[in-house]
Simulated scan of single mutants.
Amino acid sequence: MVRFKNRYFLCEIISDDSRFQQCLDERAVHNTVKNVIARMHGDFGLACCSIAFSVKYLNAYTGIVLLCCRKDFHRLLWSSLPFITYLESRNQRYPCSFNTLHVGATIRTCQKFLIHYNSNQLLALLRNCTSEADRQAIQESVQSCMFVEEEQFHSKDEESDDSMQMA
């Protein structure tokens, strides 16, 4: 059996238009990226990237998108992303650009990077904060990003293992 290797692109969609978040959906991102690949690399590039290309995750509020494609052709996708200048949705064009944050081999590595990236962004906001109420809200957000839940989960597992060994 053969395992097909993929590459995952964690990107941030940057736009100045406030209406942009309301129209952002997976189909619009998928079609836009495929159109840009076709424009940059022609039919061959489109055919290569279309084999396993998909939008795995999209957060319209933060503008974070996770794209997936085959490892063999990930450079075609990577080289096309800077040429996206607009996103078309519901017959409207919204100017935007894609900022590639991370390229990973698994979704898990992209998730870890995103957590680290978001906590760094929150810490940067904390440094630039002026009021005490804002500072407190950002500190709570930073603390909620930490892996405290996993530590509690592992300690519960250890307790249940100890109780099973005693029985």
Rank of each mutant, 00 (worst) to 15 (best):
N6Q: 11
R135D: 03
S131R: 14
I64F: 02
R39Q: 06
D17A: 07
L58Q: 08
A133P: 01
L87E: 10
Y61G: 08
C23F: 11
E132N: 15
F153Y: 12
E150N: 15
I107N: 09
E132C: 12
S141E: 06
G42F: 00
A137F: 02
L126D: 13
T62D: 03
N31H: 01
I107F: 12
L10C: 02
M40A: 11
Q22L: 02
E150M: 13
F9L: 06
R3G: 09
R3D: 12
I64E: 02
Q92S: 07
P95W: 13
F153M: 13
M164W: 09
D25G: 04
R75F: 06
W78C: 07
E151F: 07
D72C: 11
E12H: 14
V33I: 13
E12F: 05
Q136P: 00
F98K: 07
E132A: 15
T62P: 00
L66H: 11
S54C: 05
M40F: 02
A133T: 11
R70T: 08
C49R: 08
Y61L: 11
R3N: 12
H102A: 12
C96V: 14
F113E: 05
N59W: 09
R7S: 12
S15N: 02
C69G: 13
T109Y: 05
V33Q: 13
S80N: 10
L101C: 02
I37K: 08
D25Y: 10
V2A: 14
M146E: 15
Q21L: 05
I14A: 04
L58M: 06
I64L: 03
